[in-house]
């Protein structure tokens, strides 16, 4: 078993929480893991990415080779495309469709969506809206993780366990909200596959 995943977004959007939950789930499943993330200057509203590698064998590189990623999971539509050079031929692109516009030259939204739709293997969903609809707008990232959950080859229960471990210290309410968000994300993705 081997999964190479690029997580993408803008600094502050919560991709490191996604990474932490998948990572915890992988370790709980007894797998090897390497996860490279971005700290420092880029976290101030710049593009951020995390290379997440899971395998039942030891992993060498902390970075995924070009054309090697099985998945790109993105919490922002334009950012989902920035890391395409890493995606493998049959890899999947899973992205939030809600644009985070903090630059003056943000591309035309329709053109962006057309580009995403041109990939055969893609799942796109408005995770911000879904999170708002269930009353926890801050759990947008978990909705996206839910949409990606069936591609991870990890038991869903381990992801739930990961959420309980990672958000546990923030209280039962937050855990419940995030568990609901990942579940809704999973259901929406199943319907749109």
């Amino acid at each position: 078993m081997k999964k190479d995943i690029i997580l993408a977004g803008v600094g502050g959007q919560g991709i490191l929480s996604i990474a932490a939950i998948i990572g915890t789930a992988a370790i709980e499943s007894g797998l090897h893991l390497k996860q490279a993330e971005v700290h420092g200057m880029s976290q101030r509203g710049g593009d951020v990415q995390s290379h997440l590698r899971i395998s039942d064998k030891p992993i060498h590189s902390d970075l995924i080779p070009n054309g090697g990623a099985d998945l790109i999971i993105s919490v922002e539509p334009m950012e989902s495309l920035r890391y395409l050079p890493f995606l493998s031929e049959n890899g999947w692109l899973i992205t939030n469709t809600n644009a985070f516009v903090n630059i003056p030259n943000y591309p035309d939204y329709d053109e962006l969506m057309e580009t995403i739709s041109s990939f055969r293997n893609h799942i796109s969903l408005d995770a911000d809206k879904i999170a708002k609809d269930i009353g926890s707008p801050r759990s947008m990232n978990m909705v996206v993780l839910g949409a990606a959950s069936s591609f991870l080859d990890l038991p869903y229960s381990k992801l739930e366990e990961g959420i309980k471990i990672i958000f546990g210290r923030k209280g039962e309410k937050i855990v419940e909200a995030n568990l609901e968000a990942i579940n809704v994300g999973r259901e929406v993705a199943e319907q749109n596959k």
Partner: peptide
């Protein structure tokens, strides 16, 4: 073999 970054993608420097 790998794909290129689509032209539609703009730079997003820290701010």
């Amino acid at each position: 073999s790998s794909k290129d970054i689509p032209e539609v993608v703009a730079g997003r420097p820290p701010a």
